[in-house]
């Protein structure tokens, strides 16, 4: 599934996605540490703002304007907040360039892919995102 945050595009493997929805304000919670959470059908899930995690500039920071994508890995779930969904498509996973790999392991990025319009989309590795991000 491709999604958009600001000018960047990200791809999440469809197998990791449980559902996507637009949140209702009443269901949002914030704990004393500032972690945002959402109540869905009696269960509480942490929210990960992609734009904040990756410092992407976007005009959409309000939960009611964007979309939440619930992902699961190894029994752990969280909701990823993005601007909008771009649709589902099959992609070829390409490795990030060697220079970048040598420089740093980027939290939660598994690689990248070329979209039909020539744009590059970054592929999110849900497992490493869930385990490596604080507050999840």
């Amino acid at each position: 599934m491709n999604l958009k945050v600001g000018n960047s595009r990200y791809t999440i493997p469809i197998t990791a996605i449980k559902e996507s929805f637009r949140p209702v304000v009443d269901n949002l919670l914030v704990d004393p540490n500032g972690n945002e959470m959402i109540m869905v059908r009696g269960q509480c899930y942490p929210i990960l703002r992609l734009h904040r995690q990756y410092h992407v500039e976007t005009s959409i920071t309000d939960f009611t304007e964007g979309i939440l994508i619930m992902v699961e890995h190894d029994g752990k779930s969280c909701c990823i907040f993005a601007d909008e969904l771009l649709g589902q498509q099959q992609v070829v996973v390409k490795a990030l360039p060697n220079y970048i790999k040598r420089k740093k392991r980027i939290t939660g990025l598994g690689g990248c892919t070329l979209l039909g319009d020539g744009n590059i989309s970054l592929i999110i590795d849900v497992g490493s995102l869930i385990t490596n991000v604080d507050g999840l």
């Binding site: 960047s8 595009r9 990756y54 992407v56 980027i106 990025l109 990248c112 020539g118 744009n119 970054l122």
Partner: peptide, 9 residues
């Protein structure tokens, strides 16, 4: 067009 990659210098 450049695609930004997070967490890099």
């Amino acid at each position: 067009p450049i695609t930004e990659v997070p967490e890099l210098p």
